[in-house]
Amino acid sequence: MATMQIDAMAPAAAASERAAGRLWRAIRSNKKAMTGAVILLVFAIWAIFPGQIAHDNPQAFAYGRSLGPSAAHLLGTNALGQDLFAQLIWGARETLTIALVSGVLSTLLSMIMGIAAAYLGGWWDNSLNLITDILLVIPTFPLLIVIIAYYPHSGLIPMIAVLVITGYSYGARQLRAEALSMRSRDFLEAARVRGERSIYIIFVEIIPSMTSLIVAVFLGTAVYNVIAAATLQWIGFGDPNSVSWGTMLYWAQNGEALSTGQYLWAIAPGVCIGLLGAAFALVQYAFDEIGSPALQRVRLSRRRYVAPWRIRAERAR
């Protein structure tokens, strides 16, 4: 029995290793993916070592107000006397955290709801799928606002929770479709005949063979969450004392940066949000091209079929 286990595990492990190798080669050979990866890396460095890059305290009201860029303040200061460069660098931390944590959690929820529905079938499939479908058509951003409205100024955790709950449905639907199409494949039949448990089949057989779609779902959700969180923070639904790009835009808006000509205050955080979103989108775009050529066209066209209104619905405006 033990050897059989190992035999059964080995191909899966090898497959995921192969997938990782393929992924790396694909990223390196694809210009779009490489650009996206480099941007992500730079922001990750900002987020991990902000103190090494910007020596000023991002929250101290310690400097002259509305100074222009200079050697001491690379991007100048805002109307409250805070150093903008320090805010920008430190802001990467919270913004990236929101993107990653909410992206990972909502991908996990998509996997649970989508794959479980497809695999368990019957009553489970119907009820899980109905919940997903309902959440898919409720306009997300108004729902997000309404829920946040009942939790005013409560910080990051409720915001991430709401982003996860409102944002998982599209991914769940894609994963369910993929898992449904795999249900009758031979290797799953073989696993069932071997007498493997459902948990084993789902985690060792199904999920590894869906890696590329799962990554695509994660990247898509991350782009959306970056924009949605920034919009919420800009409107003032975040913690106004935190340091993030969305909060910077909130203060820029409140400090009348637009009408008083403090361009960098409003432009710099927006550029960073745009770059972060674009980086995720570029990597995702490249992923569409990487998938096996035979599947590529089918999957592309299926996704595009839902995409236009989804993009429009989901864009946090």
Binding site: I227, T231, A281
Partner: peptide
């Protein structure tokens, strides 16, 4: 692609 990832 870039324009759609910029906040509205």
């Amino acid at each position: 692609v870039i324009a759609t990832s910029i906040p509205f």
